[in-house]
Design a protein around this nucleic acid. Structure first.
Length: 429
RNA sequence: GUGGGUGUAGCUCAGCUGGUAGAGCGCUGCGUUGUGGUCGCAGAUGCCGCGGGUUCAAGUCCCGUCACUCACCCCA
């Protein structure tokens, strides 16, 4: 395996490749997460991966870290400022407004999936291109919708077999009660001994100081006022009903009044799914209500709630719990031609079988039967079809079960092979 | 952006106080003249991340650099 002397090109910093066989697990995880929404009346939304920079500045908030220092922003040929999407909700809102979905039946329930981009320093579970699956339910204040969204994510994770995670839940209040609380909190924070950077954060987004992981900071926050205790009556009532519905759905959550989300648009119900086996980047999904976002972006005065689930991190979580691999073989039948005469009939058989919907592969390069069998074994195919000159002459194939080792000769006919192979439980004799 | 760690075969790694490279797994082939998984045998593959310095001699020491990685920040 002599390497050429041409210089190698590496992937840009912080972008993951998923190569086989792990790529199969990635696919399985993404499928499990997306089916949550698609099986619950959420319709698919296909969205661009880049948008006007303005969308995120206005929608997500200029003071957020995501917008202020983590966006991939560039000018296109027409000198427009374009940004690779760092999150999904703002883009969905833009599309809903642009496609007038907000004028149709409510709530609008959508799901989406794909890559997102943040120019952060990479580490375990934190990538510059990350894959996310999300849902958004727009145009309803019903606390049952909050509970629906949370339980969709909850049971999607459960469906993968995940156990070592929990749901943090809180309410961030609304435009009526949060401003007051914010002032109370800022007054409290001003009295603390904080470094300059943290003081700045206290000024811009005081809620986020509550989430500081450093001990010298946390120690000072024990007596900090909490949003929970300052919710207005509407928010308090709403939050109580969300919890009642969650209980009805069988979701187990943990109240975390200090939980904070990094995006400015969140109001009222917010939640985060935290896995315990991932190290520092432990959030595998999160979301919440965003009651002012739509109008902020020039649309109707509609409230909404949604989540984003991290496919990359969920895969890591599954691996941490020893749940992978999820996949079976990607093929049902492996065909081995023996000798020159059999090459063409084998290829022809494979083409017919594929056309009939059977997943199959064959041995190429006229390998020895021994090495072809080895490859067949590694492919994981439950059956192997051996096609030698004798068989071709007699119009037969030898069909072998790889699990039992038994084999029999059957007619060299796509239909009968297909029937035999599709029922993986039948053995050959 | 700030700190720590690591860079030796495809992968995981060993190489002590400096003397021009090793293991396991994997891979290829053979043991079967038409048959895999087990077992046995044989074999291939390394600019020891890159550049410079010290030295008779550097994978091993020093400096720089790049990459990866973990953590802070932030978040999926």
């Amino acid at each position: 395996m002599a390497a050429s002397n041409a210089p190698k090109i590496n992937a840009p910093k912080g972008v993951p490749d998923y190569s086989p066989p792990r790529s199969r697990d990635f696919l399985a995880v993404r499928e499990a997460l997306s089916s949550a929404g698609s099986h619950a009346g959420y319709d698919y939304m296909e969205l661009p991966v880049f948008e006007s920079t303005e969308l995120y500045v206005r929608g997500v908030g200029e003071s957020t870290d995501v917008v202020s220092k983590e966006m991939y922003t560039f000018s296109d040929r027409g000198d427009r400022s374009i940004t690779l999407r760092p999150e999904g909700t703002a883009g969905v809102m833009r599309a809903v407004i642009e496609n007038r979905l907000d004028k149709g039946p409510l709530p609008v329930k959508l799901w989406y999936a794909g890559p997102f981009f943040r120019a952060e320093r990479p580490q375990h579970g934190r990538y510059r291109q990350l894959q996310q699956v999300g849902v958004e339910a727009i145009g309803s204040d019903d606390p049952a919708v909050d509970a629906e969204v949370i339980s969709l994510a909850y049971f999607a994770f459960k469906s993968l077999g995940l156990k070592n995670f929990h749901v943090d839940l809180t309410s961030l209040g609304c435009n009526d009660c949060r401003p007051n609380y914010r002032i109370v909190l800022q007054e409290f924070l001003n009295g603390l001994d904080l470094d300059e950077e943290t003081q700045e954060r206290a000024r811009l987004n005081p809620l986020r100081v509550l989430d500081d992981k450093r001990e010298q900071v946390q120690a000072q926050l024990e007596q900090a006022p909490l949003m929970m205790d300052h919710l207005c009556e509407n928010c308090s009532e709403h939050y109580a009903r969300v919890r009642t519905y969650l209980e009805a759905a069988g979701v187990i959550w943990r109240e975390n009044p200090r939980m904070v989300r990094g995006l400015d648009y969140y109001t009222r119900t917010t939640f985060e799914f935290v896995h315990h086996g991932l190290g520092a980047q432990s959030g595998i999904g999160g979301g919440g209500r965003y009651d002012g976002l739509m109008s902020e972006l020039g649309g109707s005065e509609l409230s909404g709630i949604g989540y984003g689930l991290g496919v990359d991190r969920t895969l890591l979580a599954c691996e941490a719990e020893g749940l992978t691999p999820f996949h079976d073989s990607i093929i049902d039948l492996y065909i081995i031609p023996i000798g020159q005469q059999a090459q063409l009939p084998a290829f022809s058989l494979m083409s017919q079988l594929r056309a009939s919907g059977l997943a199959c592969d064959m041995s190429f390069d006229a390998r020895s039967i021994k090495s072809a069998m080895k490859n067949a074994d590694r492919s994981g195919a439950p059956f192997v079809a051996l096609l030698g000159d004798d068989e071709v002459a007699a119009g037969l194939v030898t069909l072998k079960s790889m699990s039992t080792g038994n084999q029999e000769q059957i007619a060299l006919d796509a239909e009968s092979i297909s029937i035999k192979v599709r029922d993986r439980n039948t053995d050959v004799e």
